[in-house]
Design a protein around this nucleic acid. Sequence first.
RNA 1: GCCAGUGUAGCUCAGAGGUAGAGCAGCGGUUUCGUAAACCGCAGGUCGUCGGUUCGACUCCGACCGCUGGCUCCA
Length: 573
Amino acid sequence: MGPEETLSKMRHSAAHVMAQAVQSLFPEVKFGIGPAIKDGFYYDFDLPRPLKPEDLPVIEDRMREIIDDNLPFTSEEINKETAQQLFAAQPYKLELIDDLPDSSVTIYKQGDFTDLCRGPHVSSTGEIKALKLTHIAGAYWRGDEKRPMLQRIYGVAFGSQTELENYLARQVEATKRDHRKLGKELDLYSIHEEVGAGLICWHPKGALVRQVIEDLWRREHISRGYNIVYTPHVAKIDLWKTSGHWDFYRDYLYPPMELEEQQYIVKPMNCLGHILIFKSHLRSYRDLPLRYAELGTVYRYERAGVLHGLARVRGFTQDDAHIFCRPDQLEEEVIGVVRLAQFMMSTFGFSDYEVLLSTRPEKYTGSTQMWKQATDSLESVLQKLKLPYNIDPGEGVFYGPKIDIKLRDALGHAWQGPTIQVDFNLPQRFNVCYVGDDGLEHNVIMVHRTVLGSMERFLACLIEHYGGAFPVWLAPIQAIIIPIADRHSDYAQQIVVQFREEGIRTEVDNRSERMNLKIREAQLQKIPYMLIVGDKEATSSSASLRLRDGSNIGLEDLLQIKTRIATAIQSKA
RNA sequence: GCCAGUGUAGCUCAGAGGUAGAGCAGCGGUUUCGUAAACCGCAGGUCGUCGGUUCGACUCCGACCGCUGGCUCCA
């Protein structure tokens, strides 16, 4: 058994101990389930009253007592009837017992607490080393919102106090890097109640970062044979009825608006516009593949409870593209997309990612033969590119198989990254065809893909990945000139002009403040280069260079600094 | 949407059944300074919104809105 399994066993045992503790405090408790999860565990309870944050330390203390008692865990296999009697007062457990396939079930006991459980567990409660209950949350029984909501207590548990403390320290670091906090501190964006939840206003600095990314995105797409297009933000509802979105996706759509007795909706996706552009001509097999790319802003109604900073919003700009190709071109097109995705990931410093291939779900459209061919193509691409991947069986979208890439940021937090989806549905619904060399019409294969996801979510990911200290090429302000006294501001201004001519985003801090304050603020703003100028510098065409990590380079010639910065921008380091 | 928490000045936060307070930011002034916060003064708030209880509500109650952590879902 590896260290991960040992930990997970201990965490699962901690969940049982928590259940015992809760039972001793609330004898009427009805138990849900209590598994081990990443870093810890949870248990779902049906309790006579809502839990308060103050309850957690009480439960935790009770858990410590149980741990100190070092109660042994014992298991027993019993038949279902016996189990049903044993758990007669536990409706959720009874439901679980009913659903188990075997005629016998296992139970685990520690002290006076018994739970239905497959195990395994540590041998006694004393083996649970370091834990902390972290938060309370509501959770539907079996994740179904039509069923009762239970109260879930989350906890973390580790093999030693030191590891627990490290974990808590990482949490503190993650809080510091939270894009919502940094977004405010670095003046990147804001969300206003007056505008509406989940709708983003980009401030100049956030907009600048976004533009730099978009410029790179456009350049890369053009050089890789994409055509950039623009499509309207609203369209007649019939278009969305034809596509099936109005039927299948209605819960996510903003409601229709009426104009000249026609109903229009705001687009939730960009694909239909691209399809209509494709269909504006008769297309030959020689024209394919056609790749239409758009930084397309879409609006989707997301439930209020799921909104989260830039990461989950109601209006967002997808870095979208649709590839229309022949079946024999699919594989090469997917290779191109994966290479582009890899290029983007390495450009933004993501080296840790997971590739998932999602296969046919239970409800699907298209023939099984089409599914097989497309899934094989996707898999073959991953093999040719020697990309390690996992199969996510049945997790494809109803219209086709897909490849998803999950990124890990510098703190190990996972983000949904590039996605490549084959679509058999829309080409049929809209009769998207090309004329083959046989003179007959054939449906195209359509690939939806994004390599960044959405600009909003990608920025959220980048902010947290870099902890707000954007690499020089992305930094909204790349250099700031800090005159020591007012008499140095002319010299400072000359540097600004000179640097801007070189394309270096430069500002000057001309306030009548002390240099120390200006340095502090520039550092907090995570500006990569601070050029401090006083009498010495003004007479020698130089500046005293300081970096945002606190290091002090000292006096350096202006030309040299310019080259230094230009090189850093160039290398995207 | 559901469960829990929460909303006080632009920001970070304190306070509290008898009509609000700090630091930073802002404004005015003094200071012109050598590597992470100079000093003095001024101004700033229908205490999220609406309704109820009360002689009196920012404080108690209710509804709504926003935010936070989850459930569910996803770019």
